[in-house]
Amino acid sequence: MEFLSNYFNFRIVGQYTDVFIEGVLTTLVLAGICLVLSIFFGIFVALMRMSSNPFVWRTAAAYIQIIRSTPLLIQIYLIYYGLPFLIGNFFGEEATAIIALTIHSTPYMAEIIRAGIASIDRGQSEGAMSVGMNKMQNMFYIVLPQALANVVPPMLGQTAVLIKDTSLFSIIAVFELMGAGLRMYSETVIATESYVTTAVCYLLIYMMMLVFSNIVQKQLGGGAWQTAH
């Protein structure tokens, strides 16, 4: 232990336990909110993208392509510095960060959901229509529930990306896990302990995600569910 503490000062890391716990929790809460919002909006963008109206699907496609072709950092800056010009200083840092990340991750969710909807057999819709459901009913009661269940694995992958993306929030002065590491560095001036601890915390979250996704695959997925992918 004596030897190890030459390289890694556990005493100082110990002083920052609370800061890192708060950082991890904030990261999880912020990512969770963004996840729910981006799945919600993702469903609508996916439906728009699959619309037969050229204006509607082109709008959705343009949104998806623009977001996918520009860095998240620039999107965050545009929204962070741009929102006050447009609507005044109405949203705080956290709200702005959530808005930015939701706008960023909705297209990715939409593409995943679209693939899920496309994977549902046409016969399902035909069956639904034949028992008298209209298009909307068919979509929300028959197609979407199955599509969403089918895309749980890629969505978990996207969630892992989302959690990592929250690290950029520190740049616009939102306190989260990366911010915890930066605060520790700023106060103690020791780089190794600050950043290694941050990395370890992210890895812990990632491992939790892995375990969770294994459980989901085993619990929900029978053989048939697996073959869909």
């Binding site: 993306d165 690290s167 780089a191 950043y195 290694v196 990632y206 491992m207």
Partner: peptide, 22 residues
Amino acid sequence: LHIFRGTPYLVQLYLIYFVLPS
């Protein structure tokens, strides 16, 4: 792979830029 996929690139950048030199 897990280490590089499990941490944000920003953290990796800080580690390689600030920590490896030490």
